[in-house]
């Protein structure tokens, strides 16, 4: 399993927010979706996923609700809040600025 440190600090928040922007999901689903949508390139270990979820909830960007899940057990389902959506926009802009800057550097260096 790739080490969580492979992900840039702060990128994980972006990925989680982006994933939840589509639809609410529980922890397992979030990690699966990130893995799937990145074509198995990105993998988020539970060791960083759950603390990140707790942190985002603490910040008020996502909320959680216990719902019945596919395994017949209650699952904690996270959803994006309105502030979370705004935060996602901000993080996206930051990311795009950063990645285009990096790309620029790689092209011209």
């Amino acid at each position: 399993m790739p080490k969580p440190s492979d992900l840039l600090q702060g990128t994980l928040d972006l990925l989680i927010l982006k994933t939840l922007a589509r639809e609410p999901a529980h922890g397992w689903a979030i990690s699966k979706r990130i893995q799937l949508l990145s074509g198995d390139v990105l993998s988020v270990g539970q060791g960083s996923l759950y603390p990140a979820l707790y942190r985002l909830e603490h910040q008020g960007w996502i909320t959680a609700e216990w719902k019945d899940s596919d395994l017949g057990r209650a699952a904690k389902v996270y959803a994006l809040t309105r502030e979370g959506r705004r935060q996602l926009d901000r993080e996206l802009k930051t990311w795009q600025r950063l990645s285009s800057a990096v790309q620029l550097l790689l092209d011209n260096a």
Binding site: Y50, A75, K76
Partner: peptide, 16 residues
Amino acid sequence: REMRDELGLHLEHLTR
């Protein structure tokens, strides 16, 4: 308790 349940569920998924 919720934290335990949540992590337990994750483990369950992994097992499946």
